[in-house]
Amino acid sequence: MGRTGGVILLSLATLAALLAFVVVAARVVEQGDARLAEAKLDFVLGDMDETIERNLQLGLPLAELQQIEPLLEEVLASTPGLLAVDVFSQTGITLFSTDRGAVGEPVPPPWLEAIGNRRGAARWRATEPETITLGGPLINDFDQTEGWVALIIDKDALVLPLTRVPTLLVAAAPITLGASVIAGIIGFLVMRRRDHDMEGALAAISRHEPIADPATPLGSSSNEAVVTALAATRTLETAAEELRRLDAEV
């Protein structure tokens, strides 16, 4: 690998690594954004769970807790980005909803799938094309799940992916490019065209003169080769002279 190859390798590798870093770091920040947006909704969900569970302690079945409806309306009104709030039974039938048409209807299959896949966690999360639904269980005094609360959120209200990547790529561009240039310079300085012993061997073979003090096998073998080649040249010349003489004689 020569100087050009070294410069290209080092600068491209550094550039690619730093670009990858900025993209990964920007995505980590975006995930932080999303976690914080969800933390707020998580609190709303927990608060609502607690309020409904307090009402369940009175002994009434979930379907008959009429005070749930105003609670849902209140949560919907006070939480930006929320599209609807539902309470549904364990069988997956909507009992209360801020969307009146949904009451009595089965909940979307992705919700039940998310509940099935929550693997011991209390909360679940279902992603649909335009919405994200966060849900939590409603537990009665006997630790039995009576039903579920679901917050249906507009996907755009949570952070969309790749919102920060372009900005951060541009912001980090001077540092990224600068580091790539420095890496290229390192490549230029470190990668020499030929080693010292190669230069010596080249000189010896080109000039047909052995090196004075060969430090490496390359120098030593080149010396030996040159010495032998010179001897062979002399031998060939002697033989050629003798044959020319014989040729003249015949």
Binding site: P210, D213, P214, T216, P217, G219, S220, N223, V227
Partner: peptide, 8 residues
Amino acid sequence: MAQPPRSS
């Protein structure tokens, strides 16, 4: 005659 190298 060529001298032996220091590195082998």
